[in-house]
Design a protein around this nucleic acid. Structure first.
Length: 803
DNA sequence: AGCACGCCGACT
DNA sequence: GTCGGCGTGCTC
């Protein structure tokens, strides 16, 4: 028996199955999708069985044996094996990367190098001393002691040996249980035989006699009878108690006692939408629905109902949200409705917690997973519905290999399971809305807010006028007045600082120099804490200069606006307002998101000041004012989605106001009030924006009119980077069909990151059947010829941004 | 990727 | 002479 194994080595020539012989004693254990340990070259690696066969074309003398089988049951289902093949081809990644991304990090191997002593007589004493009494020590010990040279010598001599050891990240958490294994009579009998001074033992035994359960943790024994280890040990020796190691799940607490599940009466619109979804579910139709509902229109209630219907039919459901740790309210709602049938998956969980949640799904113990992007790979066997909330969010696209889009994976899985997909958004991506308009997706529209609240009134404030009137503050007179009014009324305010593509930088007022990162083509960001300048791309830090590094002028100061600076200005303008700041600096630690939101929800602050991360999920009744301090910073990015992103962001932020019975107000401050993305977000009307933006996309030949593929080339040397970018572009131009437009090469908008110069080439096409094949050929040229020159080439099919 | 092999210049 | 630099080639 022979198995094909995809080994855990991400490299071009390794990206294919390797054949191994299955030893007799493992034959009944091998299954497709199980992990194995196999020898590979002179090391030992982990791999996935992707096929089982009896014959091979490989010279049998070269075949090695499978060393061991890690999983008695496959961790990758047949469906996911097929999906990984599809992803490999669709995103041009290695098959091993596609397989790994489907599993929780806990199941990925990490490798450790160990040194084994073979001939202790052949090595000198100080080296031998490193080993102590052991015959094997880790590579790090030798590295730290500075004996790498020595070791290499001994390696060639054969007096020591290098071994790779596969380390499993996380194990199932176990607790020790103490089970009663004796009958009551036996215990009675033992009590009467006890020595007089065995007070504690007697107490514990008597207590056990009156208990209904027969299994306890050490904590329970300690708390109730104040037993100590020795007492328990004595009872174990008397064969009354027995130890048992039991697997437990790590607890993720999301529920609080006062939470209750509210079921809402569906509105007419919601019922119509739900009926269509249920119809698809009941008739096993893999329809993709685009649920376009304005903020507050009750999309979540529809999701909950669709999932309920799938559970009723004995099926499972996947619910994706952009980054779940941002919306604990959302998780809570699912837990309340579906209780223990829900698993939760997001980046805020530890590796062990993720592993536990994944196992609940894998073992079929839950029916629903609520999670971020990678939860799309939940190993469910019979899906009834897949939902992507806020489908336009760019976090659904993974930005490194494999560069998959959760939406594409969702649709693939829905075809496999014959179940519907629901893409929900108040501001759908242009691609999705265009597909819905063409009838590829089925459009469901919710026009009314579920609780009939009025949409907030949105005011656009022209900051140029403010400047003209001598107001240099970052608060317009109108916004400042509104804040004051709300503060008086004890209502809550959210202030949003649009930071993407814009942050505080240091500029010399004499020569105009902006202090930039020495590794990257990006200005350094001023951080108040520690008076440091930081690079957000490579992490480089340096102190704020007191004189200009170019012209030595002392007129150097920071410009731009960070949340810290806004906070100071608020303190000046509204000294009695209590402010909570929410940005990368204040949310670095685990659970800080939730804590900040809870504080604000509990009314411990009047103003919540934050960046991108507050745009979503906030749903507090007392928020009646939302201020956007600088709406247009996302507008000037050199990206075809700049307008779309700005419109989405403004609409999302505005939606935070007046979600309950109090009326909401929104102020958007901008220097370009006439831009359609700003103008139309004021009206909260998606369709007009969609039509306007579609015209722009058509004119400049961008998605959804054309598909894009982005090819980026980087090198430490500018000349080489541009030279090979030219080579790649020319090759594509010569080899792709006439229907494809090959644009470039051009320097990337961020021309240098981490000391590597970046060039790119953009392929635009409506239809290009040979695209994948040609890109694979290009990759081959790159791997075999360009890579050794230090070139790095990356290909992103359907990029979400081209920066 | 990660490792062994092998060929060549620079030193004890 | 040998140490150690890195170019080349292989992994079932």
């Amino acid at each position: 028996m022979i198995v094909e194994v995809i080994v855990d080595v991400s490299a071009y020539p390794i990206d294919r199955p390797f054949d191994y012989i299955v030893p007799e004693e493992l034959k009944d254990l091998v299954e497709r999708g199980s992990r194995v340990h196999v020898p590979f070259g002179n090391r030992k690696v982990q791999g996935f069985i992707t096929n089982i066969k009896e014959q091979t074309d490989i010279d049998t003398s070269k075949l090695k044996e499978v060393q061991s089988i890690i999983d008695v049951e496959p961790v990758v289902t047949e469906e996911l094996l097929q999906l990984s093949k599809w992803m490999t081809n669709k995103t041009l990644c290695y098959e091993i990367d596609a397989l790994q991304v489907m599993l929780p990090a806990a199941l990925r191997a990490s490798y450790k190098k160990n040194i084994k002593l073979i001939d202790s007589n052949a090595v000198d004493e100080s080296f031998l001393a490193l080993f102590g009494k052991k015959d094997t020590i880790t590579y790090e010990v030798i590295e730290k002691a500075g004996y790498l040279r020595q070791m290499k010598k001994y390696l060639t001599q054969g007096s020591v040996q290098l071994e790779t050891v596969i380390k499993q990240h996380v194990k199932a958490k176990t607790i020790t249980k103490y089970n009663v294994i004796a009958t009551k009579e036996y215990i009675q009998n033992q009590i009467s035989n006890l020595a007089k001074n065995a007070v504690k033992q007697r107490e514990l035994m008597e207590w056990l006699l009156i208990q209904e359960q027969d299994s306890f943790t050490m904590e329970e024994l300690k708390e109730t009878v104040n037993a100590n280890n020795n007492v328990v040990k004595a009872l174990i020796e008397k064969n009354i108690l027995a130890l048992e190691k039991a697997e437990v799940y790590r607890e993720i607490t999301t529920l609080e006692h006062h939470d209750t599940d509210h079921r809402f009466q569906l509105t007419e619109e919601q019922s119509v939408a739900l009926e269509k979804i249920n119809h698809a579910q009941n008739h096993a139709e893999n329809t993709t629905f685009l649920l376009h509902g304005i903020t507050g229109s009750g999309k979540t209630e529809i999701y909950l109902n669709a999932i309920e219907n799938s559970i009723l039919k004995g099926k499972q459901a996947i619910m994706l949200v952009p980054e779940i740790s941002l919306t604990p309210q959302m998780t809570r709602r699912f837990k309340l409705r579906f209780g223990d049938e829900v698993a939760v998956m997001h980046s805020g969980l530890s590796i062990g917690e993720k592993y536990d949640e994944w196992r609940k799904i894998w073992r079929g113990e839950v029916k629903v997973v609520v999670g971020a992007r990678s939860a799309i790979f939940a190993p469910f066997k019979d899906l009834g519905v897949i939902i992507l909330d806020e489908e336009h969010e760019s976090t659904y696209k993974q930005e490194d290999n494999p560069r998959y889009h959760a939406r594409d994976v969702a649709i693939w899985r829905s075809e496999f399971h014959k179940c519907p997909v629901i893409l929900g958004s108040a501001t759908p991506s242009l691609e999705s809305y265009a597909r819905a308009s063409k009838g590829v997706y089925s459009l469901l529209t919710l026009k009314a807010r579920a609780k009939e609240q009025a949409l907030p009134t949105v005011n656009v404030v022209d900051m140029r006028v403010e400047l003209k009137n001598g107001n240099r503050s970052m608060f317009s007179v109108e916004l400042a007045d509104a804040i004051r009014e709300k503060l008086d009324r004890k209502e809550q305010i959210v202030l949003f600082l649009n930071k993407r593509g814009f942050s505080s930088f240091v500029l010399c007022r004499d020569c105009g120099t902006v202090v930039e990162c020495k590794n990257c083509d990006i200005s350094l960001t001023y951080h108040r804490s520690g008076e440091q300048l930081k690079c957000h791309y490579c992490g480089h830090e340096e102190p704020v200069p007191s004189i200009c590094p170019e012209c030595a002028s002392e007129h150097i100061r920071f410009f731009g606006t960070g949340t810290q600076k806004v906070e100071e200005e608020i303190a000046k303008l509204f000294p009695f307002a209590r402010v909570i700041r929410m940005d990368v600096d204040t949310t670095r630690t685990k659970g800080s998101h939730e804590r900040i939101l809870k504080q604000f929800g509990d009314g411990e602050a009047d103003i919540l000041l934050g960046t991108q991360m507050i745009a979503k999920g906030l749903d507090f009744p007392n928020i009646t004012l939302v201020g956007v301090l600088n709406a247009d910073t996302t507008l000037h990015l050199a990206d075809f989605r700049a307008a779309e992103k700005t419109f989405q962001l403004m609409t999302q932020v505005s939606g935070r106001a007046g979600r309950h019975d109090k009326e909401g107000k929104v102020y958007i401050q901008t220097y370009t009030p006439e831009h359609y993305a700003i103008e139309l977000s004021k009206l909260q009307m998606y369709e007009p924006f969609y039509h306007k933006e579609m015209l722009v996309r058509k004119q400049y030949e961008y998605p959804p009119f054309y598909y894009l593929t982005l090819v980026q080339i980087t090198h430490e040397n500018v000349m080489l980077a541009s030279e090979y970018a030219k080579l790649a572009t020319d090759w594509l131009r010569a080899n792709l069909s006439e229907q494809s437009m090959v644009v470039g090469p051009t320097a990337c908008a961020i021309s240098k990151i981490q000391n590597r110069y970046r060039y790119q080439c953009l392929i635009k096409y409506k239809k290009e059947p040979i695209l994948i094949e040609k890109l694979q050929q290009l990759i081959k040229i790159y791997r075999t010829e360009w890579m050794k020159k230090g070139i790095i080439l990356s290909i992103d099919l359907d990029p979400s941004t081209i920066l």
